[in-house]
Amino acid sequence: MSTSRAPPVFLLVLLPFFASTAFISSVNGAAHMTPETSAICPTCPYFLPTPREVTTPEGIPANLTCGVRLLADRKVSWIRRKDLHVLTTGDFTYTTANKFRALHLPGSPYWSLQVEKPTVDDSGIYECQVSTQPKIFRRFTLNVVVPSAAITGTREMFMKAGSDINITCIVKGAIRGAPVTWYHVLPRPPYTEEEVEEINAGGRGGVQVVTDKHAGTSWLLVTHATWRDAGNYTCAPVHATPATVSVHVLDEEVPAGLHHDLHPSEGRSSITSPPCSTLLTVLLLVLQRVAAVNEHGHWCSFCLLLGITSCLSLTAVYTAAGETWTAAQDLSSTWSVWRL
């Protein structure tokens, strides 16, 4: 007659400890199923591998997905860590904010927290928690970014007529694969309405747009540029802030109506400097004669100072317009005449 032997007492004591390791302590909140833990606690829930970090553009819905096996009658809750606010439990949404919603298909081990129209303030840590004892949880990071485009180089480009225009646009934070559209604001005479055209291969020959949607980079190439290719070029990705560069095409004869816009420096060449030195000279000669016969010489000095101030102000205005006349030259000439 055979008798079964009872297990050692120390194994009975340590068995609850081994079973609890299936959950991993709430310090790290991660429950991973391994052959050892599966043998010790075959009914313990555990997390499935899912993406732990999600990045989305502002305004585009984002889903945080938590996978849990062997859930049984336990509940899955989503908690926002920054204020410990319980957002959802099971299929029920606790928050009054309409942007948060629980997503789950019956029989599926995946429980998702959907964030509709997220803003930058929604960025942070979200916790998927299972109602075990002790609780197990897994944390997820949501990054909400404001997509934007940036054109490499300066905001103004000066090109020689006949050369090639090459513009590079880098898109940051946009959805991978989002299309990029280029626009061209044509050069127009002053005080006329702007004309905007979408750039595509069907336009004039020599224009090419290449976009690497995976890298988020778009290139615009315009060969043999003419004055008609001048103007503003805008890189406009979907759901992103656009970027603009101004292109000037130089050294080519252009229509008279556009001459002022394309070559603004030439429009000021006809401005002449006021004959400030001549005016001061005449004024000083007159005041010198009056002072010789008038005992109120201080009034003459006051008038002289007033005349110099007025002339300096006039000279400063023309200097701002691009002329090279300076007040120092006027005063130097005036002082020479006064000493005579």
Rank of each mutant, 00 (worst) to 15 (best):
Y233T: 04
S38W: 10
L314G: 13
T34C: 02
T152P: 00
K213L: 08
I167A: 05
T211G: 02
L285W: 10
R204L: 14
R101P: 03
H239R: 11
A240R: 03
S131N: 07
V120M: 09
P49H: 08
T65V: 15
K117W: 05
G59Q: 10
P237V: 06
Q114W: 00
I136N: 02
F18Y: 10
V317S: 07
A161V: 07
E58S: 13
C303S: 05
K75I: 04
K160Q: 10
V146W: 01
L279Q: 11
L314I: 14
L103P: 02
P16Q: 13
D261L: 08
E198S: 11
H104E: 02
S148P: 01
C276D: 09
S301Q: 12
G59M: 10
L186P: 00
E127K: 11
A149W: 06
V115E: 04
V13C: 06
K135R: 06
A327E: 14
S333Y: 02
F10E: 15
Y183F: 11
E252Q: 14
T326L: 14
S265H: 12
T37E: 06
H248S: 12
L84H: 13
N294K: 00
L11S: 11
I125H: 13
G206I: 11
F47M: 01
H248L: 13
I271N: 10
C303M: 08
S77M: 10
E156L: 08
V249Q: 07
T37I: 03
L284P: 05
L285H: 14
I199R: 05
R339T: 11
V171M: 09
P242H: 09
H85S: 13
T152N: 09
F92Q: 12
W219L: 15
S20D: 08
V144N: 01
V9C: 03
L220E: 00
S246Q: 13
R204A: 14
T132V: 03
E198V: 14
Y233A: 02
V76C: 03
V76N: 03
G59W: 10
L12H: 12
H298A: 11
S269E: 15
S20G: 05
C44F: 05
T34G: 00
T96C: 01
E198F: 02
V249T: 06
E58N: 12
L11H: 01
F137T: 00
W78S: 06
Y46P: 04
T168D: 13
L331N: 09
E116C: 07
E197M: 11
G267D: 04
L15N: 04
Y94R: 06
T154Q: 15
N28G: 06
F23Q: 02
E198P: 08
